[in-house]
Design a protein around this nucleic acid. Structure first.
Lengths: 248, 248
DNA sequence: CAGAGTTCTGCGGGTTCCCGCAGGTCCTTT
DNA sequence: AAAGGACCTGCGGGAACCCGCAGAACTCTG
């Protein structure tokens, strides 16, 4: 146990040094601490050092934490990874829980938590091999899987597709559905996002019926404002889309 | 000059204490340093202390830096504000230069710059009343105002409108244009964003013409990926939209 | 197996979008 | 004054969208 090593992947220098400090304080049995300043470098260092204990930021420039974690877990699924993020966006939570391997120990704590809880999380994950999810993140998971405005995975896929700007036809081709099925999915998405909201004025069915919103575009924005989508998710989806377009 | 006071507005505790350190090191003539941890609190403290020297983060939870700066400058247009941000998104740069009053001294430096340059910027702005814009930010400004994929203000407005999910009709009403004019603007936007890109396969005009993209939705995503839009800009535009909807 | 629930699919319409064509109003340039 | 450019506007058509209706196919339960 004396040769435990930890890899820190974090692009902000201040946060990185803070993490190093906290790690060495919380884990006296820790020998060397390696540092990477983006996801790409994180993958490389994890590979060369065969890191089993990683604490990593989401939202980095070169390659975000979810992408990096996926390739790392693909090579060694029993790696312990603690995600340390500023935000609990549903897009992040969903992205993480989508890639975590069966039985792997991982954690998700916010940067705003206290030092004590960070240290506790470090020990729980790296020593006890036990998952630690921050309360607020946990709450997000609940709301996500419950159907209170919760999206199934397939609905989420289609939401990404319209965010990318695909046509109904293109979505149907990509997801192997009929055109009408795609439109049905869109209907559910629109209702779950409550996109039909207009001004709460008199709802008289007068001639002045206001079709203020283009539902397709509106859905994307509402999803962004609700943190269902964010920049990282868009970037990732865009890469996958390009990959798919080549094979057409 | 001995009673100079500085107000720091920054939500991250680590960055905040780092800023305090740098400010007191760079400005020995500085007496008190106040701190706020979000834009709303920043506005309040700026008002009560009549702060003339502010260094402030963009992208905060309660109210982002641009909003806060606008209300502060509205009350006292000769306030010196140094924006200290992680990113040089065109949305931020454009948002800042849209609200800076005539003749006001302000600065925009990235968090990734060296301590020396940060200190230099602090002295230049607060002592010499001189604008300091980081090189990378400056480059963004150039690209933005040159028409190399640069958007005029009116085009930018319409881009925001379709991002919000408005219909052509609604945009026309809102911006006092005819329906056709809005559609013309959209045409320009589509071409400037180069949204017509399909797979670079054989461009034969065969029957299998691929209309893969819904231009309207695609434009929004491309704008986001190019940092022309970001979450803060969306949030702000959404608030303005709600305000407009009431008056309808 | 019957029946109820959920999802997939086609049809058809009304509406909105995308955009070429053409005429109009304001400029600036020579 | 004439010629050119930049912008706004109406017309019209083909395509894509939004969505109600209604029949298949699949599941789940008793």
């Amino acid at each position: 146990m004396m040769d435990m090593e930890v890899l820190i992947v974090e692009d902000d220098p201040l946060h990185r040094s803070y993490l190093r400090e906290q790690v060495s304080a919380a884990l006296p049995e820790c020998g060397t601490i390696h540092e990477a300043e983006n996801g790409l470098q994180g993958e490389t260092l994890a590979r060369t050092h065969r890191s089993m204990h990683i604490v990593m930021d989401l939202q980095m420039n070169a390659r975000n934490g979810i992408e990096a974690a996926r390739t790392i877990w693909r090579e060694r699924p029993d790696t312990c990874i603690l995600f340390w993020s500023s935000y609990a966006d549903e897009a992040y939570v969903r992205g993480v829980s989508r890639i975590v391997p069966n039985g792997a120990a991982y954690g998700y704590v916010l940067k705003s938590t206290s030092e004590e809880r960070l240290k506790l999380a470090l020990r729980s994950i790296f020593i006890e091999n036990q998952c630690v999810i921050d309360n607020e993140v946990r709450g997000m998971q609940q709301r996500s899987f419950a159907q209170a405005s919760g999206f199934s995975d397939s609905e989420y896929e289609i939401l990404m597709d319209i965010a990318l700007g695909l046509t109904d036809r293109a979505i149907a081709d990509r997801r192997n559905l009929s055109l009408r099925s795609v439109q049905n999915r869109l209907q559910q998405i629109y209702s779950k996002l409550d996109v039909h909201q207009t001004n709460p004025s008199a709802r008289e069915p007068s001639a002045r019926e206001d079709a203020v919103f283009n539902l397709r575009a509106r859905a994307v924005t509402v999803a962004m404002l609700r943190k269902l989508l964010n920049y990282g998710a868009l970037e990732k989806a865009e890469a996958e889309l390009r990959h798919w377009l080549r094979k057409q």
